[in-house]
Nucleic acid binder design. Sequence first.
DNA 1: CTGCGACTAGAGTTTTTAGTCAATTTGGCG
DNA 2: CGCCAAATTGACTAAAAACTCTAGTCGCAG
Lengths: 215, 215
Amino acid sequence: MEKKLRTKDKILQASIELFNQVGERQVTTNHIAAHLGISPGNLYYHFRNKEDIVRQIFKEYAKLLETRIKPPSDKAEALDALACYLDAVFELMWRFHFFYANLPDILSRDPALQQDYQQVQQGVLARVIAVLKALKQSAVIQIDDDDITDLAHSIKLLVTFWISYLKTQAPDQAIDQASVYQGVLKVLLLFKPYATEQARPRIARLQQHYEDLAR
Amino acid sequence: MEKKLRTKDKILQASIELFNQVGERQVTTNHIAAHLGISPGNLYYHFRNKEDIVRQIFKEYAKLLETRIKPPSDKAEALDALACYLDAVFELMWRFHFFYANLPDILSRDPALQQDYQQVQQGVLARVIAVLKALKQSAVIQIDDDDITDLAHSIKLLVTFWISYLKTQAPDQAIDQASVYQGVLKVLLLFKPYATEQARPRIARLQQHYEDLAR
DNA sequence: CTGCGACTAGAGTTTTTAGTCAATTTGGCG
DNA sequence: CGCCAAATTGACTAAAAACTCTAGTCGCAG
């Protein structure tokens, strides 16, 4: 109880580590136990099964998503809100990138997780739309109202599968933070053509900022 | 030899069918054999293993990709070339959608397939870029040369993971042709903001065309 | 000290799927 | 017909991973 880290938390932490390193699918409960120098039985004392571990990791992820990515306050500058979002999303993406690397597979094996995921994503979509509307309102972008939802979906798709895309293109090289930041740049590129004349230089500055991080 | 379909081809066909229906991962060699009413041994007489089956299916897919999606002839109208591409890509996507539904997983289990895939994709990227350049040259879109490659990647990502995205958003409902065509529409939306004034009505017509197909 | 509950060990069971193999059938050809 | 190679059978083996179970240990409250 008073130890630095309870076994349960050590298991979660080691799981995230191993999942990120070699992929969720190839990590067995035995691997996790061996990695920690504990017995498989011990692991099953703390978790019902592997699904249970993944679910709790997802819960942690979802919690961070909720707390770190707050709805945009109307007072804040819309473009700052965007940058703030991008930072937060991509930090989470990095920390839990195993999840993004094989999302359909992971979800297909656990209907309960799938439902949680969908619920979380619904919230995300709403917030992306809110940011887009704020950007439009503050004349950063110019876009048909009809197209906003579609654009939001495209952005979400890009973010969700950026890691997967990287893996299909260059599976050998490991995912690092720089490669994740390249995903931010791609999202920015999705905005760029909608940018109003006056906003363009500020978007370019944002782009420069992430280009520096992406190497 | 003279039968309508040799066992080997029947196995390939049944595999595609089952893979599309329930997912590659959950279809075992025994399932395939049972589905055809043949013995597992028979299947292994024709194929070394399941990977072998998947590889041959991929070969067929790649061959269709090569033959159906020809490099754009300079004479043709650029926008027609685009429509032609979209049609072809999305037909293949439909026919082999199991492949798109779990790409990272399938590739990660077979390094040889992965290499083939990368090679094919390199060609695809080149052709997408060619189409974009043609569109620019014929003043359909207006875009920085620097952004063309990035846009091509975004398009490729969207196409590649459209099915996966659908599955994460609404896993229960089956993938049908209409839902695949909705992906075409998303690609078109990626172009739209780059469209020149004069090309806009023609793009809108194209959009209408796919909207009709997507329901 | 002792007893109790939280925790841990690790060998072993179960389940699942890939893959093998010797025996058998089939179909065309000399 | 009778032979041979191609095709086919299905029971069996192997391997891997999830998960269980019993027999403990540890630490602390009474």
